[in-house]
Amino acid sequence: MTSAPSVIDLSVWQLGLALLLVGVVVLVSLRQGLGLERDLLVGSVRTIVQLYLVGLILAAVFSAARWYLVVLVVAVMTAIATQAAVSRLTKPIPGGHQIAALALTVSTAVTLAYVIGVVVRVRPWYEPQYVIPIAGMILGNAMTSASLAGDRLQGDLRSRAPEVETMLALGFSGREAVQPLVRAALRAAMIPTVNGMMTVGVVQLPGMMTGQILAGSSPLVAIGYQIVVMFMLAAGTAMASLLFVRLAAGRYLTAAHQLRRYLL
């Protein structure tokens, strides 16, 4: 996956030309009174600064190639993904941070270990060029699915509380009573991933594949990786949303099989 000689290194001037594209959007915003100019400017500056900083850090980590630096970077990514997953929930889930951290850490670690160690067989295992982008993809998708699942569970607990309590009143356990809601939340979280598997490559070329092709890989090599990525994302999102929803549902139940309605 090293850059082929045909790759065009972008100069500052070329990036400036790309910025003109944002200028077009600013014009549209001004003309249509969208009021998005400020956000667009801030967003553009953040895009430049954040990506450059990340680029500098990654360049340093890549050249140092120490396992603990790679682990540190993945840990920081996990912490940020946790924060983002929790902040997307409409209403905070009690103990949501710990639950999200656990769900994202476990799902990412397991999926990453399998892909790096068993499927791709990267040597050494901490090769940052593989580990960091792959971890990033798993985390990004796990984060989205966990918060989708959590949001759905919360909404359903509010609107379907009488159903849950009817089950409890009939003598079902807390876990049994929320099972239909857990199932609905998991389905909601998994559907984007499953739909993605249905249309991948037909509607649009996934980012990773595009990047590899631009970097000079043959499309067939890129496709091989993309297939691994699709399956890996399916596993990662399933695990993350399952863990998150199960643990979150537990927060709304007590050992005496009660629904803690005041939390809803």
């Binding site: 009488p162 309590e165 009817t166 409890l168 009143a169 009939l170 003598g171 079902f172 356990s173 005496a256 099989h257 009660q258």
Partner: peptide, 15 residues
């Protein structure tokens, strides 16, 4: 056991 209690004391809700 709350589940046994709820079988012995059955609840009928408003809705």
């Amino acid at each position: 056991d709350p589940r046994e209690l709820r079988r012995q004391a059955a609840l009928v809700m408003q809705t």
